[in-house]
């Protein structure tokens, strides 16, 4: 097979990018769980996280790359900055593009269109305010090979991404499974009307769901910016891929989104080794169409309510 020669190297890279997809996919899946809607503007939440983290880190980093403990702190600050920017965007998005429609009980098409409008608005506004050129992340640390596993290089960037993603994924899983808010999210996902009769404040749950999705997506935006650049159009491709990951794992299913993200990251990297990196983005779309054809409910099945 074409990917066996570099199998472990591809696996490491695939898991790193896959954990990013997983983080973004959670935003789609959570919102889908409570609203049964694809949040088309989630890719812009991701983009906002990229810019938020970038500008914060740019303030913190001086002319030379800091080392040691400072680098760890700045990276954490960047992740938090990205997460907050993402959460803020997601909150505003819910208030402006979704809630007015929900109050009126608008049909489904209206939500999709208003989300697309929000997406157009946000990324073009970002292009206007922050320039349309790609912006590199300042050097917080020098990314190099940290150790080898089965002969594959593992870089600092990949460790940071995978580590941060792992912490957030576990935190989210516990949140959904154990806390009162998580219970509320699952209840709304199962049956919004009954949940409201049982005393769940649906609006609050929906807002918080958007915020949680925004925190994860925004953090992912910063982490993505560490490896690639930050640009106003950066959200589109990872957004569609993360959506694919969510569908692959079973949309509405939290663990499914994580699984889907990792699987997508791996398949994409193996696929690139087989075809050409020019077709990297096509692979994800092909998987999406295939999944929808063969098993539209995804690997682990749909519905947030039943998953945790």
């Amino acid at each position: 097979m074409c990917f066996t020669s570099q199998f472990w190297q591809l696996t490491v890279a695939g898991l790193a990018i896959g954990s990013l997809y997983a983080l973004i996919a959670l935003g789609y899946t959570l919102v889908y769980g409570v609203l049964q809607l694809i949040n088309f503007a989630h890719s812009e939440v991701f983009m906002a996280g990229g810019f938020g983290g970038l500008f914060l880190v740019r303030e913190l980093v001086g002319d030379t790359a800091p080392g040691g403990a400072a680098a760890v702190l700045i990276t954490t600050a960047g992740i938090l900055g990205g997460a907050l920017a993402g959460a803020g965007t997601a909150f505003v998005l819910e208030r402006t593009a979704y809630r007015p429609l929900r109050r009126r009980g608008a049909p489904r098409l209206a939500y999709l269109i208003s989300a697309i409008g929000a997406s157009l608005f946000l990324y073009n506004l970002a292009g206007k305010e922050f320039g349309r050129l790609a912006i590199p992340m300042p050097d917080i640390y020098t990314s190099g090979t940290v150790f080898h596993i089965f002969g594959a290089r593992v870089t600092t960037n990949q460790l940071v991404i995978a580590g941060a993603a792992l912490v957030m994924l576990i935190a989210l899983d516990r949140l959904v499974a154990k806390t009162r808010l998580g219970q509320g999210i699952r209840a709304v996902a199962q049956d919004a009307e009954t949940a409201s009769l049982m005393g769940v404040d649906i609006n609050k749950v929906i807002t918080l769901t958007f915020i949680i999705g925004g925190l994860l997506g925004g953090a992912a935006g910063f982490l993505y910016g560490l490896v690639f650049n930050v640009q106003y159009t950066m959200g589109f491709i990872p957004g569609v891929k993360a959506f694919t990951a969510a569908v692959l794992g079973g949309i509405g299913n939290v663990r499914g989104a994580v699984l889907g993200g990792l699987v997508l990251g791996l398949v994409e990297n193996y696929g690139v080794a087989c075809a050409s990196s020019a077709y990297r983005d096509i692979i994800a779309f092909m998987i999406l169409v295939l999944v929808l054809l063969v098993r539209p409910s995804g690997i682990l099945g749909e519905r947030l309510g039943r998953s945790a």
């Binding site: 593009a97 608008a106 208003s114 409008g117 157009l120 608005f121 073009n124």
Partner: peptide
């Protein structure tokens, strides 16, 4: 102009 188009879509839907 795409900023305006985006805003227009949201406003129309509302």
């Amino acid at each position: 102009r795409y900023i305006y188009f985006g805003a227009l879509l949201i406003l129309m839907m509302i």
